[in-house]
Amino acid sequence: HDDALQAYNKGSIFLKMHRFEDCLDAYDVAERLWEEETDMLTSQGDPEAAKRSKISFLNILSCKSYANYMMGRYDASLELIEKMLEKAPEDPEYLFRKGFVLYTSQRYEEALICLENALSKCREFPEAWYCKGNVLRELGNYDTALEAFECSIEYSQPLSYQFPRFTWIPLTSSPKMKMDSSEAWYCKGEILFRQNKYEEALEAFSRALDIKPAFEDAAKFRNIVLQELGKNSNIK
């Protein structure tokens, strides 16, 4: 266990340094050791300890999946997520991650199936609703995409810090932590603009900027909407 933990910590440092190949080498060691530990504890009839070891094993798979994703190795990332789903097929976070990587790979129909499956198991999942909205937008289903973004906003709670546009949810995340809904407001505004619903688009971009004042894309789009409405772009 100590050797596995040491390898995991080493891999995590390499991950933060974006030394992904070194990161994966260290994680491979931790994966092998924790998998062996899980099997050993299970055979010894210690289910509680085996469960803790299994969580560590799954966390390693998640980290390896993320490292591969960051290198653009989407197929390898998906293979690792499938391995996670073999161990926990009903986990909504794993299903979301699979849908997220499929979305990035432009495999939109497959992504939609995964995201809907995740949401059927956990409706209050703002990241999954947000990703579903983006998938639907790519498919041209704008009205349904708007509904998804609205659900993302409903289940989100702005925090004092901002998440990136797509968040790789850690296994140890607090259930009280909610994503920043500024991105969902922005995407909603973009669709409303395409539909020539300028007043509603203006409200959406303004809401995004209320949450995230430094949101440059939202500010630019808001000025475009103001110009379409024939207003002064300096109006707040």
Rank of each mutant, 00 (worst) to 15 (best):
D2E: 13
D3V: 08
D3C: 05
L5W: 12
S12A: 14
E21G: 03
C23W: 08
Y27S: 02
D28S: 14
R32S: 12
W34L: 08
W34E: 06
E36W: 03
E36A: 10
E37V: 07
E37S: 11
T42W: 05
E48T: 13
A50V: 03
K51E: 12
R52F: 12
I55V: 12
I55K: 10
F57L: 14
N59C: 07
S62M: 11
C63V: 11
K64W: 03
M70C: 09
M70K: 11
M70Y: 04
G72T: 05
D75M: 12
L80Y: 03
I81M: 04
I81V: 15
I81T: 09
D91N: 15
D91E: 13
Y94F: 15
Y94W: 15
G99F: 04
F100Y: 14
V101A: 05
Y108T: 06
E110T: 07
L115T: 02
E116K: 14
E116L: 12
N117R: 13
L119G: 04
E124K: 14
F125P: 05
C131T: 15
G133L: 00
V135R: 02
L136I: 00
L136K: 00
R137Q: 01
G140M: 00
D143K: 00
T144A: 05
E150N: 12
C151Y: 13
I153Q: 03
E154V: 07
Y155N: 05
Q157Y: 14
P158K: 05
Q162N: 11
F163H: 14
F163W: 13
P164L: 12
R165T: 06
F166A: 09
W168K: 05
W168F: 15
I169L: 12
P170G: 08
K178H: 15
M179L: 11
D180A: 09
S181L: 02
E183A: 08
W185D: 01
I191W: 01
Y198T: 02
E199P: 02
L202P: 00
A204D: 01
F205W: 09
R207I: 05
A208V: 11
D210C: 11
I211R: 01
P213F: 12
A218F: 05
A218W: 02
A219V: 01
R222E: 09
I224K: 06
I224Q: 06
V225M: 05
V225E: 02
L226I: 07
N232G: 02
K236M: 13
